[in-house]
Design a protein around this nucleic acid. Structure first.
Lengths: 200, 200
DNA sequence: GTCTATAGATAGATAGAC
DNA sequence: GTCTATCTATCTATAGAC
């Protein structure tokens, strides 16, 4: 197996470079010229392959986020204890976040600048999870509350330290290593927190 | 007292119009021409009063967010029961969020596009709150865990339904009235949730 | 202070050679 | 498919009249 870098075809090179630049600079801050430089080719080629900046971003965005939502769908369908299932959701969130810490802020930025893309996200996985919560709530296994309150709590608990990283590091004068440790400890903390919240 | 609109001087008119447009469109999406139209005057006047788009945004951003941080500072200093203090923080968050639901996403967008502005935020209030948490944790009144885990949890629980609003409404096919009710019920839910999390 | 007109710069997109 | 050169649109910012 040769070095993957060398075997990438042009389209893949563009997608990889664009992903990097969009993650770092956001949609508005990203420049087609910078993506071209990063991919080691000319600007015109980006348009040859993807027509426009908008279409290039759309492709990357939907692939990234729909992949995560489909993970959610698979988990919802599996036969297992409810709390085990919640733990697996949290694990899957944390794994994704450690690998892609910019995903939450990229999603928020996209809501502001490309609300139409939100309409194209797969909704199945999240819907299934909501049903699971409603079922457990009706059985009395967890607190009786609108399931949206629980869903937003789990998501908020998972992603907040990633969203807040730049502010928290400035406000509390923290270094990268310390903050990274906080992030790595987040999963176990959230699991305990969610159990405490859900107790009827 | 006459209608406030009529008595505003030019500078205030600009600030009000700009606030509205920046909130709705974000910094990158905002247009000086649109702000001028909204304020009922010419584009050149905006530059006459504020020099540049950047300076205009900076002024509005810092005023808005530092005001909230100073509220936090005042609360931290007050003599009262710890859990009462936490409840007041949550009340103050929820009140601000109901009035300004776009504040969290505006802050996230600013982190991406103007990281230098983050450096100018008042840090005192949040630092005091962290000390309060560390003190209670050492006394054994609440769980023993890095105080950042708790701070990010409280903030995350409060703001998540506001950040997630467009996505949640799409994914679960909800109408505005229903979602507004979820937001109004958030405060009491978060108070209970935080108590559950903090129990040693 | 407030306006009209315009300069100046940037960046996405395309034409056309190879 | 890939490149260079260029068009075109957009938007911030300023010059200058009133």
């Amino acid at each position: 197996m040769v070095n993957k870098e060398l075997t990438l075809d042009t389209e893949e090179k563009i997608l990889q470079a664009a992903t990097k630049v969009f993650e770092r600079d956001g949609y508005a801050g990203a420049r087609m010229q910078v993506i071209a430089d990063e991919a080691g080719m000319n600007k015109a080629l980006l348009h040859y392959y993807f027509r426009s900046k908008e279409k290039l971003f759309s492709k990357i965005f939907l692939e990234k986020y729909n992949k995560f939502f489909s993970t959610l769908s698979i988990l919802a369908d599996q036969e297992m204890d409810f709390f085990e299932k919640i733990d697996k959701v949290i694990d899957s969130y944390m794994e994704m976040l450690i690998q892609n810490p910019e995903m939450p802020s990229m999603l928020i930025n996209t809501i502001t600048h490309h609300p139409e893309l939100i309409q194209k996200l797969n909704t199945e996985g999240a819907q299934k999870m909501r049903s699971v919560l409603q079922f457990e709530s009706e059985k009395g296994n967890i607190i009786a509350v609108e399931s949206l309150q629980i869903l937003t709590s789990v998501v908020g608990l998972c992603i907040m330290p990633f969203l807040a990283k730049p502010i928290a590091m400035h406000v509390f004068k923290l270094d990268m290593d310390f903050y990274q440790q906080v992030l790595l400890n987040r999963g176990p903390f959230v699991k305990k927190a969610v159990r405490a919240i859900l107790k009827p």
